[in-house]
Computed example of a mutant assay.
Amino acid sequence: MVDVRGLDVSFGSARVLRGVDLRLERGRTVGIVGESGSGKSTLAKVLVGTVRAASGTATVDGVDIVAADRRAMRAYRRRAQMIPQDPYSSLSPRRTIAQTLAEAIDPVRGRVATHEQLIGEWLVRVGLTPEMMHRFPHEFSGGQRQRIAIARGLIIDPHLVIADEITSALDVSVQVQILDLLAGIKDSLGVTMMFISHNLAVVQRVSDDVVVLYQGEVVEAGPVEQVYADPQHWYTRRLLDADPGAPGFSLAS
């Protein structure tokens, strides 16, 4: 599904990604972990098509998005969706939830009346009610807004979903609810997912595989149980030792 090879990204003189290799099988979830500045979000932006790589290849569902032209990228962007870290800033305060979701379904002619049934179904699917579609973002809690962001990312049936630190601003009990919700929807749809987080407990809960980034390079990768139980790189061991996601710790159910 995702095959990244030798990916390099620079901003000015700063080289952010350095020869990144990554493979992700269809229907699986890979957790991307690393400290701030390790290149996690830059990798995500390359894979959704908002940042172009300087070199290397990034083939997603048969499309090399490094080499793709504008027309190909317009079609591709609907197949790869990002769930943002801060849903409040990504939701227009002047638009109802129905208007926002209708626009996600059809950016050109996003009419609420046309898509009202689908919008209502997705609100139920993320644990809200159809009546809530007529409210504005400020009328929801942080956890509810994150549920809306999940609905917006998945309502168009993408092939690849990237969740970027989506639980970092939530308390632990709400984190668990959001993670379980996302995992359930992901399994029912069979979608392929990349889950970015600095919280190793979160990554362990939702991921099949894990990739560790350090200063723009992949320093370790493998099945999540293997990497957590027997980390091979010193940086992975340091992350595990410094984080409550170390072996033996898990988010409460």
Rank of each mutant, 00 (worst) to 15 (best):
G27D: 05
T114K: 15
S38V: 09
L128G: 00
V176C: 03
Q117P: 00
A98F: 07
R77S: 09
H198D: 02
I155L: 08
D241C: 04
A169D: 06
R145N: 09
H138T: 05
V30N: 01
S90V: 07
I105A: 12
L47P: 00
V66G: 05
L101Y: 05
H138F: 13
T59I: 15
L22T: 00
G245V: 06
A183V: 09
P93A: 12
A53Q: 05
Y235A: 03
G12V: 05
S90C: 15
D64E: 08
V224K: 10
V60S: 02
S90Q: 13
R77E: 06
R205S: 04
T96C: 04
Q226W: 04
S197C: 08
G19Q: 06
G31M: 02
P87Y: 11
Q215D: 11
S197H: 11
V203M: 03
L128P: 02
R28L: 11
V174K: 03
A183D: 12
S36Y: 12
Q204H: 15
Q81C: 01
G62P: 06
V66N: 06
L181H: 02
V191D: 01
T96R: 14
I196Q: 06
A246N: 14
S168P: 05
R77N: 08
L160D: 04
M133V: 02
A44H: 05
G49V: 05
V30S: 02
R28E: 13
H134P: 01
I65L: 07
V206H: 00
G143C: 07
L118E: 12
P137A: 09
D208W: 08
R125N: 06
A151Q: 04
I148F: 04
S41L: 07
R145M: 10
V20P: 03
T57M: 12
G49P: 03
R28C: 08
T114Y: 00
R77P: 05
R94E: 09
I178P: 01
K40Y: 11
R152C: 07
T42R: 01
I166N: 00
I105G: 13
V210Y: 01
V60P: 01
L123S: 05
F140A: 07
P107H: 11
T100G: 10
T96V: 01
S207Y: 03
E25M: 10
T129A: 14
G12I: 07
E25L: 12
L118A: 14
V51R: 14
R74V: 06
G12F: 10
Q215L: 15
G216I: 08
E131S: 15
H115Y: 15
G19K: 08
D86P: 12
G248W: 10
